[in-house]
Design a protein around this nucleic acid. Structure first.
Lengths: 105, 105
DNA sequence: ATTCAGTGCAACCGCAGAGTTGCACAATTT
DNA sequence: AAATTGTGCAACTCTGCGGTTGCACTGAAT
């Protein structure tokens, strides 16, 4: 996964409706139509969101008969979390080093 | 920190320019004007981004004489990472439980 | 054969936001 | 006193995107 897609993942996670979808999928696979019944948005809107989530790997299509269900990929979230943590730790490390130098220690 | 602000943090992280700013700040504190010299955007644009980052706690203003520098808050990133990881783990746990039940185990 | 979900594609609307220019103001320098 | 530098605020443009409606297609059910 590249840095460019990291930003894309965050952009995907920066929308309330998509979090609602992810939360709903967290209770089990569901199709776009099924999600549209639970959420206050159109099926087409949900389909678009699912496409976005799919492109960044947060969600996975699961063909079930004639309908297309989606499953949330928790592993992608944990992977993103690890990378985020690494960046934060690195910045803290570098900045505290700068601070020490500035203080002449 | 609430769930609503979690989404806001991700929205803030879902922009390339803001990552450029964060990366630049990762090498040391800097003012909006200083950042504008390194990045291909106007000072005003940077000021707006800094305001966004500040509202979600990813960045901190540091008055330095007459100019206003900003410092990246790595701790906020690591905190966000932890929460993200927790959500991912929970979803994986619940979904694998559902899967076991569906398989009749 | 026909109705009935479920999906996909396309066009359109409205708004938020990323970026710009322009101006006004305070502190610093010369 | 004048020029310089850093900041803040306001208005404007324009693209992106969340959401909608509408239509066409396919597989299942009656």
């Amino acid at each position: 996964m590249t840095d460019a897609t990291l930003v894309a993942v965050f952009a995907a996670l920066g929308d309330d409706t998509r979090w609602s979808i992810l939360a709903a999928l967290g209770e089990g696979e569901a199709s776009a139509s099924a999600l549209a019944e639970r959420l206050p948005v159109t099926r087409q809107a949900i389909a678009k969101h699912l496409a976005v989530l799919r492109e960044v790997g947060l969600v996975e299509p699961v063909p079930a008969g004639r309908e297309l269900r989606y499953r949330v990929v928790g592993a992608e979230l944990t992977a993103t979390a690890r990378r985020l943590d690494a960046v934060g730790a690195e910045w803290d490390r570098r900045l505290s080093a700068i601070k020490r130098i500035a203080e002449g220690l």
